[in-house]
């Protein structure tokens, strides 16, 4: 095991897959000569050259479309969209093409490709750079949507995504790139479609994904000091959703807090909450608590922005609320 950042883990995954498989190639805006706007692709252009690591114009729709076409021809393209906000320009290619092609052509075509992009706010980048839109993609049959929270999962899931024969939307988070964690030595893959219990506990389940998992773990630490044992379920995969792991956790704890950085209405927490009510209602001792981003376009001002994003304190208070214990 070695310590590395989430960014380094992604970089390692890309490098290892480029070395392993000649059909893997990267495309994106400034991922090559510039080394990537978040430096995830650092050094890869120098090592592999412009055939394998391709800089593109600012043409999100056509970059993704070209990846779909290249995938139809048997390559395994990995597209970086600079942030999930810009991916809205490519939704036609993702939703109408990548997600549909296999099914609507009778199973006679495959689209093995990955679209990587960070979401999330917290960096005073304003309304058009700070959204968490993963749920938009998670609603679409034909896509696999994953959002790892730790460097170990980031590496194992990116490698698994590249090797998967389906179109995978790989959600990163700008606030995770510098976070550190243990990453196993050597070759490993983390399966897509499986949640992971990041901390076991018996009193309350906190269900989250991406950066919110780190806040959930911090909240669990605070709760532990007060004698409350929280279980943290890291969804990791949003589509398909690991219903069984969520259900089993709530069956054990009988209490749930569902968390997401993005807007909650019709959101990931709407889905996880419905899942809990549909599969574990009889085990719940109290209504679950939903914690999500404030439903406004993200403001620039630091204090205003911070007021939009869920906090450790909110998660702690949410856990106490569903446990019907007075908030501290």
């Amino acid at each position: 095991m070695g310590q590395m950042t989430y960014r380094e883990a992604l970089n390692q995954a890309l490098r290892e897959e480029l070395l392993r498989d000649e059909t893997v190639m990267l495309m994106g805006e400034d991922i090559g000569l510039f080394d990537g706007s978040f430096k995830v692709t650092q050094g890869l252009y120098k090592e592999f050259g412009e055939r394998r690591v391709r800089d593109t114009p600012i043409s999100e729709d056509t970059i993704v479309g070209a990846a779909v076409g290249a995938a139809l021809a048997g390559l395994r393209p990995v597209v970086e969209i600079m942030t999930i906000n810009f991916s809205l320009l490519a939704t036609d290619q993702v939703v109408n093409h990548a997600a549909k092609i296999r099914y609507m052509f009778g199973g006679h075509a495959t689209v093995p490709m990955v679209v990587r992009m960070p979401g999330g706010g917290g960096h005073q980048l304003g309304a058009q750079h700070s959204q968490s839109l993963e749920v938009w993609y998670a609603t679409i049959p034909g896509l696999i949507v994953v959002a790892p929270a730790t460097p170990a999962d980031a590496k194992g899931m990116l490698k698994a995504s590249i090797r998967d024969d389906n179109p995978v939307i790989f959600i990163e988070n700008e606030g995770l790139y510098n976070t550190k964690g243990e990453v196993p030595e050597g070759e490993y893959l983390t399966p897509l479609g499986r949640a992971d219990v990041k901390r076991a506990g018996s009193d309350v389940s906190i269900v989250a994904h991406s950066r919110m998992v780190l806040l959930a773990l911090e909240a669990a630490g605070v709760l532990a000091k007060e004698g409350i044992e929280a279980e943290v379920v890291d969804l990791r995969s949003l589509r398909p959703l690991d219903v069984e792991t969520i259900r089993a956790s709530v069956e054990k704890t009988s209490h749930a807090v569902v968390v997401e950085e993005g807007w909650g209405s019709y959101g990931i927490t709407a889905e996880t909450a419905a899942t809990i009510y549909e599969t574990a209602f009889d085990f719940l001792d109290a209504p679950l608590v939903r914690i999500a981003g404030v439903e406004v376009p993200m403001p620039y001002n630091h204090n205003m922005e911070q007021a939009c994003i869920p906090t450790v304190e909110q998660i702690v208070a949410g856990a106490k609320k569903t446990l019907r214990k007075a908030a501290a």
Binding site: D61, T62, G65, A66, G69, A71, A73
Partner: peptide
């Protein structure tokens, strides 16, 4: 939409 896909096979 399919014009972009054609870029991909040509690539």
């Amino acid at each position: 939409g399919s014009i972009a896909l054609a870029v991909g096979t040509a690539l």
